[in-house]
């Protein structure tokens, strides 16, 4: 009895040193390539610093509108309890468990089964689900998916990933506008020893590509952390696993045209809306289904063996 009492009290293990370490290394590498970018822009002179500041400012402004932007991009409609009593009741019960304010609840009219959370902090959070996921999952599975989204809110993932991408946005802006910027400046620069426009362009290109891969890695680690959060709070890793299998199975059968319309918010979805083989691995926003199921299986086992 006392053995089981302890096991119940401890529940599913919440931390994972390996995952935390991988996340830390990713953030450090990101900081390193960003520092390189800033250094090169600084050396290249005032106009590049100005471009950097303006683009970074715009990217940060997005952060304040992230909830509205994502909802608009996804075509999500905020609903009241009268419209979706079951969903709203489940979410308010989960809010108690996560000790978070009740998020706004939105529904996306799409048969693609998916769910997402956004908002810069818990007080501005929105949890959205598609009609497709409501149709396919049973109650406990839906709770597990909603708990995954609550974990994103708790971990402030919308803010973390926005922050992580600020300088990547600057780099991509310079790459996309590179030739235009270069033509504008011409060859009339007079500062000796300053990096040329070509060097700025090449460094930006490198920073953009590397940071893209790193941000995707960070996104995958945050997904795994949200899966753990769901398991820790609901105590039911197997329900989330079952939901993921159902969702992924359905994703494979949905035509591509439908998937692309859902792509803008992909980094915040529970399952990537873009499920092409070419995008798996390094460039995926989400870990593979196998990786996620393996983690959930380990959590279930850890819980049983305690």
């Amino acid at each position: 009895m006392s053995d089981r009492r302890q096991r119940l009290a401890r529940g599913v293990p919440s931390g994972d040193a390996g995952l935390t370490a991988r996340m830390g290394v990713t953030v450090l590498l990101l900081a390193a390539v960003y520092a390189l970018l800033v250094a090169v822009l600084w050396a290249a002179g005032g106009s590049f610093v100005l471009i950097g500041l303006v683009v970074a400012g715009l990217a940060l402004a997005q952060y304040f509108y992230s909830d509205r932007l994502v909802l608009a991009a996804m075509g999500a409609r905020v609903v009241s309890r009268a419209e979706a009593p079951d969903l709203v009741d489940r979410i308010s019960r989960l809010a108690v468990q996560f000790d978070l304010p009740i998020p706004r609840v939105a529904i996306i009219d799409s048969d693609v089964p998916n769910a997402l959370a956004t908002g810069r902090d818990p007080a501005h959070s929105v949890v959205a689900v598609t009609t497709g996921i409501l149709r396919r999952l049973d109650g406990p599975e839906l709770d597990a998916v909603l708990a995954h989204e609550f974990s994103h809110v708790l971990h402030r993932d919308a803010a973390v990933l926005t922050m992580a991408a600020v300088f990547a946005t600057v780099a991509s802006f310079i790459v996309q506008m590179g030739f235009w910027l270069g033509l504008g400046r011409g060859e009339d620069r007079d500062g000796e020893g300053r990096p040329s426009v070509v060097v700025v362009y090449l460094v930006s290109l490198g920073v953009w590509l590397i940071s893209f891969v790193l941000i995707r890695a960070l996104s995958r680690y945050r997904e795994l952390a949200a899966d753990r959060g769901s398991a820790a709070v609901t105590g039911a890793p197997s329900q989330l696993a079952s939901a993921l299998v159902k969702i992924s199975g359905a994703m494979g059968r949905i035509p591509d045209a439908d998937l692309r319309t859902v792509e803008p918010g992909s980094a915040l979805l529970i399952v990537p809306a873009f499920s092409r083989q070419s995008l798996v691995g390094l460039l995926a926003t989400h870990p593979s289904l196998e990786t996620r199921l393996e983690q959930l299986r380990r959590l279930e086992a850890a819980e049983l063996s305690r």
Binding site: F98, L154, H155, R156, A225, V233
Partner: peptide, 9 residues
């Protein structure tokens, strides 16, 4: 939260 660790309340 930033490290992605959920400790149940």
């Amino acid at each position: 939260a930033l490290l992605g660790r959920t400790r149940p309340a």
